[in-house]
Amino acid sequence: MRLIFAGTPEIAVPTLAALEGAGHQIVAVLTQPDAPGKRGRTLHPSPVKEYALARGLDVWTPEKASAPEIVARVKELEVDAAAVVAYGQILRPRLLEAVRLAWVNLHFSVLPTWRGAAPVQRAIMAGDEITGASTFVIEKGLDTGPVIGTLTERIRPTDTAGDLLDRLAGLGAPLMVQSLELLDSGQARPAPQGDDDVSYAEKLSRDDAYVAWELPAHVVDRRVRGCTPAPGAWTTLPDGSVAKLGSVSPRPRRAGTVPGQVRLEEGEVLVGTGTDPVALSTIAPAGKKPMDAAAWWRGARLGEGAQLGEA
């Protein structure tokens, strides 16, 4: 098949690689324009752009993928279909109609659950036990198109959003290959999404990543894991400065304390929650790299009753 691929982050690369590996011709790769890194003004290419250029593929980085000139270029290529994985732009009808078959998206949930920008993160934060991936035909609505194929995957008790996204990216790549090939052969039977079990996964904000210590320990654990690695769970230190947190582990056999109160016990830094305390793994005070929580505690020299989070 002659294909266009549209994607931006690292989790999109396995699908691009799988499509090439299956012998399909990638005639153009769309990805987001180069963007500044976390520090400084230097522009950096997306992981998809880096991979595509290394493979000698034709890379496009339009500010607006549905601009008339991009639509015209797509039509000139006479492609069969387009594969989309975490591209980051809304695709307008005039662009969707510019290929022979369809634009097919790989979405990391079992639709219609968790439509939207952060399905894996929201699934972890909600305490879901099962998630998965879906391929669907893109239409005007947000993740509402008919579904071609799905797979399911268990959410492990220690999965961060990064862990689970990486796993689903690998599992979803062959699903995309199969879905496009079934579509091309006429064997695909895209099924409309039902109206039941619809949920929405809004993009995570900085406020979503704030750890409210008054919540139960298992909810704190889910919030931290769902926000790792981005935007990164955070709290405030006793001096009011911000610190990023690594994973936490509920400690049901340890004595509880005031939510947010921090102490060292048996070599672990424990923080009180609305139920059991949780043990911190790493902490990164503002302007510093993540460090072992016990090492941070020794250096911080906090007094008895020290409190994390807003008073």
Rank of each mutant, 00 (worst) to 15 (best):
P36A: 02
A212I: 04
I138Y: 03
A118H: 06
A6V: 08
H44A: 12
A118N: 10
D208F: 05
R253T: 12
A294H: 01
L308P: 13
G37H: 10
E310I: 04
A17Y: 09
D166W: 03
P119C: 05
R254N: 08
G272H: 05
K244C: 02
K203G: 14
E20S: 10
L182W: 04
A102W: 05
G172Q: 05
D159R: 04
G21A: 11
M1V: 09
S249N: 10
W234Q: 00
V104Y: 07
A294Q: 06
D34G: 04
G246V: 00
A133Y: 09
S205R: 07
I155C: 08
V110P: 08
I70K: 03
T160K: 02
T15C: 14
S185L: 07
D163M: 01
A72W: 01
V13M: 08
L264K: 05
L245V: 00
H24Y: 12
D184S: 11
G7P: 11
T150S: 09
A209T: 08
V262R: 03
G149E: 15
K49T: 07
A243W: 00
P229F: 00
T113F: 14
I4Q: 01
S205D: 08
G194S: 12
V177Q: 10
D163W: 06
G272A: 04
E266V: 11
A117R: 05
T135D: 15
S241H: 04
V211G: 01
E50K: 09
E202N: 13
A133L: 08
V99Q: 14
L171A: 10
A86T: 04
S46C: 02
V211N: 02
Y200Q: 11
Q25D: 14
R39E: 08
R154N: 04
V242W: 00
P146W: 14
P174S: 01
A284M: 06
Q32L: 15
I130P: 03
A72P: 15
